[in-house]
C-alpha cells in the first residue's frame, strides 16, 4: 500500500492542501492565505472566507498533487479537517473531500484541527515521540495537552476566556497596530521594554494548567484609556512588549510546569502564536534550565496548513477510523470530544 495521504484544510481563512508520505514526510504543502482580504475588517469575516474557499480549493488541491508529483492512483487515502472552526468554511473542504474520496474510492478520515496542529511537530521533528506535552496556541485556542500516543490525548488545561492569539488581536486593535495582531505586536515589541509596565499575570491556583488572558487585555485597555483621558501619549512599543511578556511568561511557565508534572522530556509548541519570537526565546531559555527539549515547527507549519492534517490523518487511517458519508462539520469540536 502506498503511504501517501492528501490532506485538505479550510477551517478558517487559509485554503490548504498537501501530500504527506508515511505521516512524516511532506511531499507538497500548498497554503493560500486570505489574510489580505480580511485585513480591512480587523478579523476573519466568515462569509468572505467561505466564498474564497469555494473559489480556490480545487486548483490548490491540484497544485498539491502536481507539486508532489503524484496522481490520484498513487494515494492511499485522504484526510480533511471537520472541526473546530467556522462552520461555513469547514463545510467547503468537507464537501470537496467527500466527493473526491467517493469518486476515487479512497478511504477518507476526518481530522480534528487541534490534533492537526500537534502533528505539525511530528512533521518537523522526526525524533519526536509520545509521551510529550504539547501547547496548542493560536487565535482560537490555548490548550495544554498530554500526548500519550497517536490519537490519545489528555487535555491538561485550556483558556477560561480569551485565547492567547485573540488577546494579541484585541490589544493590537486598541494600540492601532492593525490585524493580524500577533505579528504586529511581535514587531512593535522589539523596540520596547518588556519590564516597562507591570501587566497582571493571571494566577489560577485551583487549575494550574489553565489560562486566562481577559484580565491582561482589560489591563492594557485601562492603561490606554487612563493616558488618553489625561491627554498623554503612550509608548506603544513599551505597551506591546510588556503585554507580550505577560502573555508569554504565563504560557511558558504553565507549560513547563505541566511537562515536569507529567514527567515527559519533550515539549512541542504549535499553532499560530508558536511563531512569536518572544515565546520561542523564553521557551528556549527556560526549557534549557529545566532540562527539557522544546520543539517548535517552522513558521510555515505554525500557520494553518494541510500537511499537518494529512499527517494526523495517516495515523487515524492506520487506526481504521474512517469517516462516514454523512460526516458533518463540528465547529465546537474539542480534543477530548473525539
Amino acid at each position: 500500500m502506498s503511504q501517501l495521504i492528501l490532506g485538505i484544510e479550510t477551517s478558517c481563512d487559509e485554503t490548504a492542501a498537501a501530500v504527506v508520505a508515511g505521516g512524516r514526510r511532506i511531499r507538497s504543502n500548498i497554503i493560500f492565505s486570505q489574510i489580505k482580504l480580511h485585513q480591512p475588517f480587523g478579523g476573519v469575516v466568515p462569509e468572505l472566507a467561505s466564498r474564497n474557499h469555494i473559489k480556490n480549493i480545487n486548483p490548490i488541491i491540484q497544485e498539491a498533487l502536481d507539486q508532489a508529483g503524484v496522481t490520484w492512483e498513487d494515494l492511499a487515502g485522504m484526510a480533511v479537517t471537520y472541526g473546530p472552526g467556522l462552520v461555513g468554511a469547514l463545510l467547503v473542504g468537507l464537501a470537496v473531500a467527500k466527493a473526491l474520496a467517493f469518486a476515487r474510492r479512497l478511504p477518507l478520515v476526518g481530522v480534528n484541527h487541534l490534533e492537526g496542529h500537534i502533528y505539525s511537530n511530528y512533521l518537523a521533528h522526526p525524533h519526536l515521540k509520545p509521551p510529550f506535552v504539547s501547547l496548542v496556541v493560536s487565535g482560537g485556542h490555548t490548550d495544554l495537552v498530554h500526548v500519550l500516543g497517536h490519537g490519545q490525548y489528555c487535555l491538561l488545561g485550556q483558556t477560561r476566556d480569551d485565547a492567547a492569539g485573540e488577546a494579541f488581536d484585541k490589544v493590537a486593535r486598541v494600540l492601532g497596530l492593525g490585524y493580524p495582531g500577533g505579528p504586529a505586536i511581535d514587531a512593535a515589541a522589539r523596540e520596547g521594554n518588556p519590564r516597562a509596565i507591570d501587566f497582571p499575570r493571571a494566577i489560577l491556583p485551583d487549575a494550574p494548567a489553565d489560562f486566562s488572558f481577559s484580565g491582561v487585555k482589560t489591563a492594557v485597555l485601562n492603561y490606554h484609556n487612563q493616558h488618553r483621558q489625561r491627554g498623554q501619549d503612550i509608548n506603544v512599543a513599551h505597551v506591546a512588549a510588556s503585554f507580550q511578556a505577560a502573555v508569554v511568561e504565563v504560557l511558558v511557565e504553565r507549560t513547563l510546569a505541566a511537562a515536569v508534572k507529567c514527567e515527559v522530556e519533550q515539549v512541542a509548541v504549535c499553532g499560530g502564536v508558536a511563531a512569536n519570537t518572544a515565546l520561542r526565546e523564553l521557551f528556549r531559555i527556560r526549557g534549557a534550565e529545566a532540562g527539557l527539549e522544546i520543539l517548535f515547527p517552522p513558521p510555515i507549519l505554525c500557520t494553518d496548513n494541510a500537511a499537518m492534517i494529512a499527517a494526523a490523518g495517516y495515523y487515524r487511517l492506520q487506526a481504521g477510523c474512517l469517516a462516514p458519508l454523512d460526516l458533518n462539520a463540528v465547529p465546537n469540536l474539542s480534543l477530548d470530544s473525539r
Binding site: 472552526g85 482560537g140 485550556q158 483558556t159 480569551d162 485565547a163 485573540e166 465547529p331 465546537n332
Partner: peptide, 8 residues
C-alpha cells in the same frame, strides 16, 4: 468554561 466566542 464559558470562553470567548469571538473565534467561532
Amino acid at each position: 468554561y464559558i470562553t470567548s466566542p469571538t473565534y467561532l
